[in-house]
Design a binder for these strands. Structure first.
Lengths: 203, 203
DNA sequence: CAAACGTCTATACACTTGTATATTATGTTC
DNA sequence: GAACATAATATACAAGTGTATAGACGTTTG
């Protein structure tokens, strides 16, 4: 934002990222970012409540920053999974698996995107939808590449197909959050079946 | 819960439903049930904060009651839509349309289910998933009926197909919530395309 | 009628929240 | 080292929160 301005005076002892990390550490299966209080985050980040204002306008601004970090980080993971496709696994399987496996990673990015899309302020929800849109675009791009490769059986309306798959996978991911690990494996197979069903119906 | 116990003493001047209605009137695009405070609901229902405890253990218990009411009411609407299918509209179209049109109805049931599935306590989320499950079951039943009718092209795995469709429609419905009305019409067509794509891929 | 009982309210307490104001601490620049 | 600018803090306040306690009110039962 203003990182280009020349600064004199005291150097910041904590930065935005420290506060973002503190916020992420507070969200969990039961806590949404939207419900975090300024004081709570400040406490976790070990700063005085008022110092928060040096870095973010309000808790909504923090939430948006968290969402953006979560989204870009997740997309990097799935993108990597698509590129490192092994011989034995399909694109669909490796993508879905890497997505679902992120559920348990420590910086709990996926739950954030899964949960926060429907609560909070307008700007807040817009941030989540923007991240979802990035997922859709990348998938749509993949589908179009596929169409160029196998021109005899093109996928119709790749934009909507990408959207449907993205939404479905996210919705099912939300389910997986509150689920014992042994059932997760079955859920992954279920999701793969669903995605393949969509792809089959789209040609 | 305890509506069967014999009661002596003063008659209740307000009942559970009044409080539920008060809570529903407070939720909106920006407010989730989970964020309602006991005092806030009591104020809206015109009762003293402590009187709340006479009817609900805590705000979570209230939220669950709201969710159950919203779910059963919604299913009745969609079920009715499926039965009153006109000659000119497909099952898919009339179902999706009646679902999406509920977004603007006064007792805003649909947004409640759409939003609250991912926030709140365990019991809270369980209540939402239970309602979703009812939707899935009814749709699965419809698909199986279809299979009996058109035995030459049966839908494989109707359970998973029903689940995929339900989740997808709910997820897209959440999108429609924050959307100007003119764009809604296009979204409905998009959802119908998605559902039909799934059905096409499932035979 | 009176006693018992359930419903509701009033008051109060300890706690958390967001933020305004004033102050201190610490780095940069001359 | 002095002057300065900025970061971070300490203190404080009004508002809102959940709930404990005790009393007021009406209904039912003996």
């Amino acid at each position: 934002m203003d990182s280009g301005t020349t600064q004199t005076g005291r150097k910041a002892s904590i930065n935005r990222l420290d506060i973002i990390k503190a916020a992420i550490s507070l969200v969990g299966p039961q806590r949404s970012i939207a419900s975090l209080s300024l004081r709570e985050v400040a406490r976790q980040a070990q700063i005085a409540p008022n110092s928060f204002y040096r870095h973010f306008k309000d808790t909504d601004a923090l939430a948006i920053a968290v969402i953006e970090e979560a989204g870009s980080s997740l997309r990097a993971i799935v993108r990597q999974a698509r590129q490192l496709i092994s011989e034995r696994k399909s694109v669909v399987r490796s993508s879905v698996e890497s997505f679902m496996n992120q559920l348990d990673e420590d910086p709990n990015y996926l739950p954030i995107l899964l949960r926060e899309g429907t609560v909070g302020s307008d700007a807040f929800q817009l941030a989540v939808r923007k991240q979802l849109h990035f997922f859709e675009q990348e998938l749509q791009h993949d589908l179009e590449l596929h169409n160029n490769q196998y021109q005899e059986k093109p996928i119709k309306n790749p934009k909507l197909v990408a959207r449907a798959i993205t939404r479905l996978v996210f919705a099912m991911g939300a389910d997986a959050l509150n689920m014992p690990h042994e059932e997760r494996k079955k859920l992954i197979d279920d999701v793969i079946f669903m995605v393949k069903t969509i792809l089959r119906g789209a040609v």
